[in-house]
Amino acid sequence: MFEDGTIINELLIERLNYFIYVVLLLIGLHAMIAKKNLIKKLIGMSIFQTAIILFYVSIGVKEGSTIPVYLPEHDPHGSHSVPSDTNETSHFDHGPVILDSSLVKGYANPLPHVLMLTAIVVGVATLGLALALCQRIYQGYGTIEEDELLAKMESREIRSKTLSVQIPKDQKLPKKDELKKEKSRSVSKSKTLSASKPKPKGKK
């Protein structure tokens, strides 16, 4: 099963990262599509984005290379970061030079890391926004389960539609009252629900 050249061998031994990233990505994707809880969807989203980050970082792997920060002997400011116990400062005293191609192999590719820094920040921003949306939805509907949410939205829509058709334009007030009543009803319902279920919000 693990002979040279088979796909399984390639994936599991030589390219484990690529295999793992696919698995992570699928977990995330499945959570985003199939889970009913909005917070679970967001967890899936985070996993999804992390998988992509893993993929990009895997591109940057280069055998026998170090992190993309110049070693003391290539440092543009010469002696800048030489340990003090060696007395060879003068040896490192040079201006910036263009590294030749054999030395280039010694450093990892910085570009994927930079790209992923950007992707991480974008992921954090999206997550923050999505959490705010969840709170807003919870305030409005008292639930963050998708099916309950849809049912509630639908019942409210029917209610407002029938109201707006029957009531002439200058008598809008009863509709608002009705909505308020409905809101308080939904809140109280969610309270009874949340007593049996642990609340999804983080709490001290």
């Binding site: 909005l38 999505a130 949306l133 969840c134 807003r136 939805i137 305030q139 409005g140 509907y141 949410l149 939205m153 409210r156």
Partner: peptide
């Protein structure tokens, strides 16, 4: 805008 909009945005 409204709560409904927030649910759609999600």
């Amino acid at each position: 805008g409204s709560n409904r909009a927030a649910a759609a945005t999600f």
